[in-house]
Computed example of a mutant assay.
Amino acid sequence: MSRVVVTGGSGKLGRAVVEELAAHGYDVVNVDVAPPPAGQPAAFTRVDLTDLGQVMEALHGVDDRYSGVDAVVHLAAIPAPGLRPSGATFANNVVATHHVFLAARQAGIRNVVWASSETVLGLPFDVPPPYVPVDEEYTVRPESTYSLGKAVEEEMARHFARWDPTAKYVGLRFSNVMADEDYAAFPAFADDPRSRIWNLWGYIDARDGAVATRLALESDLTGFEAFVVASPDTVLDRPSADLVAEYFPDVPVTRPLVGNETLLGIDKARRLLGWDPQRSWRDRA
C-alpha cells in the first residue's frame, strides 16, 4: 500500500478524501489541528502546518507512528474569505502550503495534490468572467485576499515543479463543497438566483471531489497542472443558457449549453484525469 498524508483530513472534504483513499487500499495519515471523526480509517497526528519543523516531521515520519510517505494531499486551510482577517488568512494558508511543498521536496515526495480554489477564476464575479463556461485557460483573477493566496500557491507550485521536472503538483480548484445534509437548502435557491451568482451557481459533492483527488494522485502527469472540480450541474433547475442570458448577457458563450450543466468547465479534469462526477443534489431533493 502507498502511504498518503492528508492535511485537513478532519474537514468536510478531507473526511471524504480519507474515506475514498482508504477504500482503495491506501495507508492514510490524517494531519490536522482538529480531531478526526470517530471511526475514521486513518492514523491521526496533530500538526500545526505553520510550523515548518512539524511539517517536515509529518512528511518524513512521526516517531513510531509511521515512517516514509509516498504522496501528500494538502487540504488544510482557512477555507473561505472573511472567516479570519485577511492578513491572518494569507499568513496561515500561504505559509502552510509553502511548508507542505518544501517538506515534500525535502522528503523526496514527488506526488503532491492540493486544494486550490474556484475563487481564482474571478469569484464573486462582480466583474463578469471573460467567457462561459469558465475554465483553466485564462489567467487567474483573484478578487479577495483568500483567492490571492490560492493564486500565490499555484505560482509556487509552478516553480517547485520546475525545480524537479519528475515531480507532480496538481491544484484542484474545488467549487463550494457540499455534503448530503447541505442539499436540503438547495430548492430555496430558486427563490433568489442572485444568492448563488457569485460562483455561477456551482458546487461539488464532497465524494465526487474525493474521487477527483484520488485520480489526480494516480495520474501519470508531471509538472504543475490545475483543474476545475465542480459537479456536472448547477444548484438551480433553470436552464444554464437562460441564466447566462439574464445575468451575463454580454459574456461570450463558447459552446451550446445543455440543460442545467455547470458553468464551471470541468472538461479538462474529465479528459486528463478520467474523472466522471456522478452525484447531484437532485438525487436527494
Rank of each mutant, 00 (worst) to 15 (best):
F186T: 11
E218K: 02
R207G: 09
A245S: 11
A161K: 07
R84S: 11
P35H: 04
V62D: 07
W114G: 08
F186Q: 11
V94R: 00
K12G: 03
V4C: 04
A42P: 07
E225C: 06
A151M: 01
L236M: 05
A76W: 12
F160T: 06
E225D: 12
T7F: 03
T97H: 10
V112C: 03
P81N: 09
L172Y: 09
D283F: 05
P81E: 06
I78Y: 07
V244F: 02
L102H: 15
A43P: 01
M178H: 06
G209T: 09
E154Q: 01
P79I: 10
E154I: 01
A167T: 03
N260A: 12
V18R: 09
N92K: 09
G53W: 01
V55R: 08
S280Q: 15
V253H: 11
A115D: 08
Y183G: 05
P36Q: 08
G223Q: 08
V134E: 14
A88F: 10
G25F: 04
H159S: 06
D126W: 14
R270P: 10
A96N: 04
P165W: 00
H74M: 03
A38G: 04
V211D: 07
F101I: 06
A226V: 11
L221A: 13
I197W: 12
L172T: 05
P232M: 03
A80M: 10
D32T: 10
S195A: 15
P133T: 01
H99F: 10
A22V: 00
T89D: 06
P133K: 09
P142E: 13
V6I: 05
R162H: 13
A241E: 13
A190V: 06
A190E: 15
R238S: 15
V31G: 02
G68N: 02
V69T: 00
V4P: 02
F186L: 09
E218G: 02
A216C: 05
S195H: 07
P165N: 00
L263Q: 13
P129V: 09
P187E: 11
R194A: 05
D242Q: 15
E137W: 07
S86N: 14
Q106P: 06
G108Y: 08
F90L: 14
A43S: 15
D51Q: 11
R214W: 05
V229G: 04
P36W: 02
S10I: 08
V29S: 00
W163N: 12
R270V: 10
E143F: 00
L200W: 11
G82Y: 01
V33D: 14
L221G: 10
V69R: 01
T139K: 14
D220Y: 07
E153K: 04
G223I: 04
F248I: 02
R196P: 00
Q106N: 15
A241M: 11
L121K: 02
A38N: 00
S67W: 06
G39Q: 04
H159N: 10
G82Q: 08
A96W: 06
V120C: 05
A22M: 08
A206T: 14
M1A: 12
G61P: 01
V100D: 10
L263C: 09
R282N: 11
